[in-house]
Write a protein that binds this DNA or RNA. Sequence first.
DNA 1: TATACAGATTTACGTAACGTCAATGTCAAT
DNA 2: ATTGACATTGACGTTACGTAAATCTGTATA
Lengths: 254, 254
Amino acid sequence: MEYTVQKLGQIAGISTRTLRYYDEVGLLKPARINSSGYRIYGQAEVDRLQQILFYRELGVSLESIKEIVTAPAFDGAKALREHHEKLLAKREQLNLLIANVEKTIALTEGRITMSDLEKFEGFKQKLIDDNEEKYGQEIRAKYGDEAIDRSNAKLKGMSQEQYAEITRLGNEVIETLHAAFKTGNPAGELAQRAADLHRQWLSFSWDSYTKEAHAGLAQMYVDDERFTAYYDAKHPGAAAFLRDAILLYTGMKA
Amino acid sequence: MEYTVQKLGQIAGISTRTLRYYDEVGLLKPARINSSGYRIYGQAEVDRLQQILFYRELGVSLESIKEIVTAPAFDGAKALREHHEKLLAKREQLNLLIANVEKTIALTEGRITMSDLEKFEGFKQKLIDDNEEKYGQEIRAKYGDEAIDRSNAKLKGMSQEQYAEITRLGNEVIETLHAAFKTGNPAGELAQRAADLHRQWLSFSWDSYTKEAHAGLAQMYVDDERFTAYYDAKHPGAAAFLRDAILLYTGMKA
DNA sequence: TATACAGATTTACGTAACGTCAATGTCAAT
DNA sequence: ATTGACATTGACGTTACGTAAATCTGTATA
């Protein structure tokens, strides 16, 4: 049997545009072109199309399908396993996304005001997560594993009230820091209050507070541009100022 | 504080291209353009960008983000809930995809030959699933719910051996049907053997076989072009031939 | 001061897999 | 001869930018 684009499209359940596209990219070329320039497909093409659609159903890219169905020696099973890995990763990513959206919805439905800073908190948390790998190892080496591990656990088990409180504290740290920054004196009363608020804020996610860890984190705020950007957003130099204040507060600097 | 593209990009962790694109689509326009044509952003733009990135993290499209952050009266919570629905649907789809890929991998690793027809079986199954809504109701009305419900359950609990057997049977039905078709006689020995093989094949997924259901299905093969296309792929008219053979086989036609 | 170099600009192509016109040619039937 | 169904080749639109290319601006240095 010979088929024209429309006929083949009908029995395969795809559009003629798709068939012409597959021809264009070399995925499925017609058996021949008749005198009028029409594409004519034969049985071999029908079979090949079935294979193509099969892999397409599995979400394999046309590029990969081309390799699979074109090269007879190509390892289709291996390609499928790789595809499988990608799908799993995609699902993981999607799960995280859904969890975040759900968390956000819960917050808004709990009528907790989503102030800009609050939103930024979540965003910042993500930055922290992203760099867990980089800084996590350092912190683990310096202050032990539990500081890190408990942080996540604690955050997960946090109630809405606690979340609101930590957010409020975070805002207060920023406000106090900015006010203190204007004084220019990291040893002054305002600066030391900012450092103390920062300790309180920290204690929500870190279960074992130590001066050393606190001072180390302050230094990190200056070393990592992403943290610096956060604290320096309104007042450049505020991150370094906060570090100085904390160093004095913790007594880690004479 | 005022920021140029690069500075803003750095503190926000995005590229300058992204900022120019957001300007282009009207998502985030700079506070002003200086005498050299440079984009200058202010504090308000920083805040707005943070909001934008927040929603972007949640996978919301830029178009939707624009509505959320532009219209102050826009219901952001509702938009989020709709987005949530979409994400859940996406995950469901992904789960199905993963299951299918895993099934395929299991089959190939079990070294069951993936003949073209076998692949087509899976494809056809998908067509059947897609039209469960349409035909499911008809069949339920005619032959009761359990025929449908058990079908899925049975398929899921099927072993590899059983799967191979049903596939082999499916192939045999097709081959016998084609041979019978050439005789042109639906009452002939070959045609009746095809009908019997078809009954066996059917019994794998339908737990309660009845002549009426068998005959009804045969008629559906002719009425629904998708089934017709499958049986008619090599020999147009084969679907109708099979129906006639089955009607005679079941005695539903004098 | 000339030059280098970083950083800014606009323009425009590329991405994946087609959908959707638009303009035009072919085939069979009336 | 006309009509209507079906074929063809462009070519733009889709998403959210990446990636040049060509050109201008601002600042530091030899």
